[in-house]
Every structure is written in C-alpha cells, then in structure tokens.
C-alpha cells in the first residue's frame, strides 16, 4: 500500500491502468483472493450497519474482574485493562475506522480531481502554479503534513479525515493529471478533434470520463491506505477521543500492555492489515477489469 504513495506519481497505479488486455482478460473470473476480500468487506459492512448483530458484549462495559484476559470462548479477542471485550470493541470501532477511511479517501480524491484537472487543462500559468504547489506538497511526508494539521485543528475524527485526506491528495493529483493528459493525446480525442467537435464536448464526453474511470480503483486503494494513516495518527495519540474503539486508538491503548497482553495490539493490528489487504485486492481487481473494458 505504502509503495503507492512513496513512488513518484503513483507509478504502480499508472502502470496497472495501462496493463495489457491479455492480463485484463485473465482477471475476468473472480479470483479466490478477491472473493475472500469481498467476504471481508461484506463482514465489515455488516459491522458498520449493525454492529450489535456481530458483537458479543457492550463495547464500553467495564468488568474489572475480567481485566486483561487472554482470548477465550467468552472473550474471542481477549479483554483490555478495564475488562472490556476486545472483539466487541473492534466490531463497534469499524464504523468510525471506515468513516475516517472513506471520508479521507473521498476528500483526497476530490482534491486530487480539482488539482489534477487544473494542472492538466489549465493555462500555462494555472497549470504551472498547480504543478509547483503539488510538488511542494508532495515533498512533505504525508504523516508530517497530517501531524501539522492535527496540531492546528486539534485531535478528532474530522481532523483525521482532513489531515489524511489533504495529506495524501498530492499523489493522487499527479495520477489524475497523468490520466487526463493521456486521454487528451489518445486516438479517439484526436479523431473527435478532426471531426470538428467543440472543445467542451470533447472534454465532457471523452477526456473526463476516460480519465476518471480508473480512479474508481484508485479510490478503493486509497480507502485502505487512509485507514492505515488514520490508525497511525490514533496510535500517536492524535486521533479520536476515548472511549472510542477506532482501531488505531485500540492499538495506542494496547501499547502500554504489549508485553503483558499482546493480543491488545496484535489483534487490532491484524484487523487493520486485513482490511487494507482486502481493499487493495478489490482495488486491483477493479483496475484490471476497467482496463479490459477500455481496451
């Protein structure tokens, strides 16, 4: 996941978008990994919609007699220092974690669309300015930028959405710009120009749709990545307020007990990794399918 952000201009995505038709055709069948990923997402969707159906305990109910118990039949994921059931906390934390992930991804891509379109379609001055701005933002490590925003706005779920969304937008803006430029130079746009279609029509009917479609895949990837970033902020104590069981906050709270009750850190960590992997698998699959549709 992080390779996407760390590599200049999100090259893995761009290269995936330009995958060969043969590879795209191979991915028409639902691969087991994607089926598994869909199952995970479905389960998490249920946890968002109706956590009470999955949870076995009240996520904030304290039971001091059951503090720091290892995973068991009674407490599937064990209990924390106050005897709260970790499994139920993870289930109830899904909504907040996913809200932050989806919100940040949506904000990030919305910003990326605006910046990317301006960079690709604006005049020399606008395009140059936006490109430099994106490059400057790009030079900031995402986490550092997010930390700066949290310091200014104060820790909360909204801040996390803004911090992660804004922090990761520059990378996606570069992708959007690349897509639009590629579409502008494509044969069908050249043909439309040759046929004398007005510029606005070409943009609306050909350039924008073709440039934006691959972003559906990018969005899925971005959700997983945003959850990882947001969890990182929560882990640093800069996330949501207690007793929220947002996954990063669970990691942070469990840190103090890592040598005595490792499940408090390992399990929420695994959940975050699982979701990120599922989102990535689905995203790559969508990417491949879109590409095959294009070719």
């Amino acid at each position: 996941m992080t390779a996407l952000k760390d590599s200049p201009a999100g090259s893995p995505v761009e290269s995936a978008v330009q995958a060969t038709p043969a590879r795209a055709r191979r991915s028409r069948r639902v691969r087991p990994s994607v089926a598994l990923a869909l199952a995970v997402v479905g389960l998490l969707g249920l946890a968002v919609a109706a956590p009470q159906l999955l949870a076995t305990h009240d996520p904030t109910a304290i039971d001091f007699s059951a503090a720091l118990q290892a995973p068991s039949a009674e407490h599937w994921f064990g209990t924390d220092e106050s005897g709260r059931d970790l499994y139920s906390r993870v289930v109830h934390g899904t909504r907040e974690s996913l809200t932050i992930g989806l919100g940040a991804a949506a904000l990030s891509l919305a910003l990326a669309l605006v910046l990317g379109a301006l960079a690709a379609l604006g005049g020399r001055f606008v395009s140059g300015t936006v490109n430099r701005l994106v490059e400057i933002l790009f030079a900031f490590p995402t986490l550092l930028f997010a930390l700066l925003l949290v310091a200014i706005l104060g820790p909360s779920a909204t801040t996390q959405i803004v911090a992660v969304g804004v922090g990761s937008a520059p990378g996606y803006a570069r992708i959007v710009r690349g897509q639009i430029l590629a579409a502008r130079r494509s044969g069908y746009v050249e043909a439309a120009i040759a046929l004398g279609h007005p510029r606005s029509v070409i943009l609306r009917q050909h350039v924008i749709p073709n440039a934006v479609r691959p972003l559906v895949a990018v969005f899925t990837l971005c959700v997983g990545q945003s959850i990882v970033w947001a969890s990182g902020l929560s882990f640093l104590g800069l996330g949501v307020a207690p007793p929220s069981s947002e996954w990063g906050a669970l990691l942070d709270a469990g840190r103090a007990y890592v040598t005595h009750a490792p499940w408090l850190v390992v399990i929420p960590g695994l959940v975050i990794v699982t979701l990120a992997l599922a989102a990535t698998a689905i995203g790559k699959d969508i990417q491949a399918r879109l590409e095959s549709g294009d070719s």
């Binding site: 310091a151 104590g237 840190r255 103090a256």
Partner: peptide, 29 residues
C-alpha cells in the same frame, strides 16, 4: 497511561446515572 485508563473507568461508571463525559486527551504541546 494508567491515569488515562482510570479516567475512562470513571467515564463509563458515571454513564449509569446519566452523565455524558467527553474525555479529551490534550497533547503535551
């Protein structure tokens, strides 16, 4: 960290009589 866990314990217990405690962890800076 121990103190923060204690505050959460209080937050949860006073909920039973109807207090909504909004805990805000403020970073050192």
């Amino acid at each position: 960290a121990d103190g923060a866990a204690i505050l959460q314990g209080i937050q949860e217990q006073v909920k039973a009589v109807g207090f909504h405690v909004e805990l805000i962890p403020v970073p050192p800076s």
